[in-house]
Structure formats: C-alpha cells, structure tokens
Design a protein around this nucleic acid. Structure first.
Lengths: 161, 161
DNA sequence: GCGCGATAATTGATGTGTCATCTATTCGTG
DNA sequence: CACGAATAGATGACACATCAATTATCGCGC
C-alpha cells in the first residue's frame, strides 16, 4: 500500500484519506441513527418512508414508486414495510388498478410518529453535522457528494448494463 | 423544514446538503462492500480484522486490543470473530496471562484470504472513490472527514461522560 | 382466449450491527 | 484470605441489508 505498481496500488496518503473518509462518514451515520432512534423511537429508514408517504397524494403510494422515490431496492422496502406494518405505522392494501401490486398507506399512528420525529431529526442533523462545519466546508461536502453520486451512477449504469 | 424557528429547523439548502451527503456516502459504502465482497469473497469487516492481525506480533491479538485498534465495539468484534472462526479465517485461544480473555489468531487460510483480497480492495477504492475526485476534492474530503471525526469525538466524550 | 415472458411484490437465507444481559475471572481492600 | 466491584468476553434478541428464489398477475402475440 506504499509503493505504486500496476496502477492499482495506493499511496499512503490516498489510503489514509480514503480510510478517514469512509470510517468517519460511517461513524456519522451510526451516531445519527442512534441519536435519532433514541429521541424519536423510529429509525432513519422509518423516517424516510413516513415522510415520503406523508407527502404523497392520499398519503399512500405504490410500493415500487415508494422504493424508487427513496432510492431503495424493492426487497429492502418490502422487508421494512413488513416491520413498519407490525408496529402499526403503515398499512398495506392491494393496488386497485393492478392486483399484483400493493399500496403502502400512512396510518394515523404513522402520521403522529412522523410529526414527533421531525424536530429530533433536524436537531440531530444540526448538532452532529451542520454545527461541525464552516459554510465553506458545507459547500465542499455538497460538491463532493454530488461528484461521487454522479460517478457512482456512471459506474452503475455504464450506458447499457 | 423551510422556515427557521427554535434554532433546530433547517433551511432547504442545509437539508439538501445533508441529504445528498449522507445518502451518497452510504451508497459509496454499499457499492464498495458489494464490489469488494464479490471480487475477494471476504467482507470489508473481514479485511480490517485480517489486516490488523497480519500486522500484529505473532499474528495474534487480544480481542480488546483488536477492537480498540480497528475502532469496533467488543460485542461487534465478538460476533464477527465467531463468523470468521466458522469460516476458518481465524482461530481463538484463551489468553495466557488472563484466563478471562481470548486471543484471535490468524490462520493460514486467513493469511491467504488477506493476500488475495488486497489488490481487489485497492482497485475498488481507486475506481469508486479516488478516480472520481480531483486532488483538491480529495484534500477537501480528508479535511471534512477529520473535522467531522473530531466533532463526533467531542460529542461522544464531552470531558467526562 | 391461451400461453408465455415480463413485472410487482414477498419470502427465506445469510451476514451484519446494537443493545442488554450473562458468565467467568481478576483485582482491590478490608 | 474473602468478598464485592470491575473487567473480558460471549450470547441472545432484534433491526437491518442483500441476494436468490418464489408467487401471482399482467399483457402481448398468436
């Protein structure tokens, strides 16, 4: 990892930059998740689902659209909706136009949970992320994220397959 | 989430920056993990453990030191070592000096797995991360990560508890 | 209107992370 | 030395993510 050869070895500096970046962002995610869960009783994943549903027409969405909207695989969403349904945060109904499909519907309990979660959510983001950064750093974070996101998208779908 | 009140609401821009940052870093982690696992047959977590052990005196470490070294909770490490032991990558022995404790020992299979994983590992880092960024962006990423890391450390241990 | 590939969603298996709890051992202090 | 607190580590329960396989329905071409 110190010498350069074959085009795939990394310099110490490259490797260190990578490591501190990936480990810290992972730590940030974990800290946020823990804080958020402890303060509101719902997870970050729950929050995404609830928010999307609350903004949807009739507070309901087809599973596929929901998955698309929040950028999850359908299998992941299906499992997650199962758990949320157990807890009464959402309910599932078969889609009226296509009986293969299902709609996730926000329940009243789900609406309440979302309402109570928003403030802790924003507070945690401010405290653990925004407060740490200067405006320039925040701008750099955004630039970085957008660059990486585009790069990953290109890697994922290089023209065809 | 648009208006500012109570000091905890976020501007749209703050929220968007947060979202793209956290979602993209999470996506990067997932992409790396998938690529790495597919190419080498071991996970990123396995890699960290194997690397630490391979560099240790006698290719063995006390569980606590290992956990400390790679920054994991002991419970997490314990579960992970159990799985790695199942696959023959490591072996556990009771510590000679303290019979409460245990040592994780790198097996020959573990050493081989590490050897075969290094190139794919570096390659994935280069391809998904380093290749995406200009030198300035890479420097910004590191600066950002270090700032956040320090901030999180301060939040975690504010002087005493 | 039948048959078959495509699509929507669920399910099961497995790996992973966290928390709370448990067991065994060590150590400090009387 | 004995006892209780602290420590090392393992374990069980649960939430979560990914992958492969499965089920049910749709819709097109004949």
């Amino acid at each position: 990892m110190a010498e350069r050869k074959g085009g795939s070895a990394l310099s110490r500096e490259e490797y260190d930059s990578w490591r501190v970046f990936i480990e810290t962002t992972e730590e940030l995610r974990g800290a946020l998740a823990g804080r958020f869960q402890a303060d509101s009783g719902i997870s970050a994943g729950d929050y995404q689902v609830l928010l999307a549903l609350s903004e949807a027409e009739g507070r309901r969405m087809r599973s596929s659209e929901l998955a698309e909207g929040i950028g999850w695989e359908r299998s992941r969403l299906s499992h997650h909706l199962g758990r949320m349904e157990q807890r009464g945060l959402i309910r599932r109904e078969t889609a009226p136009t296509d009986s293969r499909g299902s709609e996730a519907v926000l329940t009243d309990d789900g609406r309440d949970a979302l309402r109570h979660a928003s403030v802790p959510h924003f507070h945690a983001i401010r405290e653990l992320f925004l407060d740490a950064l200067t405006p320039a750093q925040l701008a750099a974070a955004r630039d970085l994220a957008e660059t990486l996101r585009d790069h990953l998208a290109a890697k994922r779908k290089p023209r065809r397959g």
